[in-house]
Amino acid sequence: MKSEISTQEFAMRFTSTPRGARLARRLVSLRLDEWGHPYDGRVNEAVTLIAAEFVANAVRHGRVPGRDFHLRLAEEDGVVRLEVSDTRGERLPEPRVPCGEGGRGLILVEALADTWGVAPRQPGKTVWAEVRLSPATHR
């Protein structure tokens, strides 16, 4: 018997402002809940925290005046993938030892995501992360 592959996708542009970042984070959590990953579940919490870090970085470090950032969330083949694209390509994220108030976010991403990375685009870059669904949550 062949199992059905569930594919869902949400994509949207947001203003490169703190308000845009908050909205993006909330919509990620809402979409995941609608897709069957409850707010207090492992997948929703992990992906929402990753989204919070990626969109905050897009606003803080990837902002180009007059340009928005783009978010894409997809679930397919037992994996939730989050992508955040901005138009600044010269500042590529990498985990580092925290210093002062900053630097912890990508260490958190590394701990929560099964895999993550950065891909160039014109203009800018896309930061992405994937979280595998456990067999119990995979439809």
Results as ranks from 00 to 15, higher is better:
Thr137Gly: 10
Ile50Trp: 13
Arg81Asn: 06
Cys99Thr: 15
Ala51Met: 03
Gln122Met: 08
Gly78Met: 05
Gly100Pro: 02
Val80Phe: 12
Glu9His: 13
Arg132Met: 13
Val79His: 05
Ala111Arg: 02
Thr7Ala: 14
Arg63Gly: 01
His70Lys: 01
Leu32Phe: 09
Arg25Ile: 09
Pro120Thr: 06
Ser6Val: 15
Thr115Asn: 13
Ser16Pro: 01
Arg81Thr: 13
Leu92Gln: 08
Ala51Cys: 10
Thr7Val: 15
His61Phe: 06
Gly89Ser: 02
Pro98Asn: 00
Val55Gly: 03
Thr48Asp: 03
Leu30His: 14
Asn44Leu: 03
Val47Tyr: 12
Pro18Thr: 06
Ala113Lys: 05
Ile107Trp: 11
Met1Ile: 12
Arg139Tyr: 09
Val131Ala: 08
Glu45Trp: 11
Glu110Leu: 13
Asp33Ile: 05
Glu34Asp: 06
Ala74Ser: 13
Phe69Ala: 00
Gly105Asn: 02
Val118His: 10
Met12Trp: 13
Gly105Phe: 00
Phe54Val: 06
Gly100Asn: 02
Thr87Pro: 00
Pro93Leu: 03
Thr87Tyr: 00
Ala58Met: 02
Ser3Asn: 14
Glu94Pro: 08
Tyr39Glu: 15
Leu32Ser: 08
Arg96Ser: 09
Val55Pro: 06
His37Val: 05
Arg26Val: 09
Ala58Cys: 06
Pro120Val: 04
Glu101Arg: 07
Lys2Asp: 12
Trp35Pro: 12
Ala119Arg: 10
Leu112Trp: 07
Leu108His: 04
Val97His: 11
Glu83Ala: 11
Tyr39Cys: 13
Ala74Arg: 09
Pro98His: 01
Gln8Arg: 15
Glu83Asp: 12
Val79Thr: 10
Phe14Met: 01
Pro95Arg: 10
Arg88Asn: 09
Val64Pro: 01
Ala11Ile: 04
Gly20Ser: 08
Val79Ser: 07
Arg22Glu: 15
His61Ala: 04
Val80His: 11
Asn57Val: 01
Glu130Gln: 07
Ala119Met: 07
Pro123Ile: 03
Arg42Gln: 15
Glu110Ala: 14
Arg63Ser: 00
Gly89Ile: 04
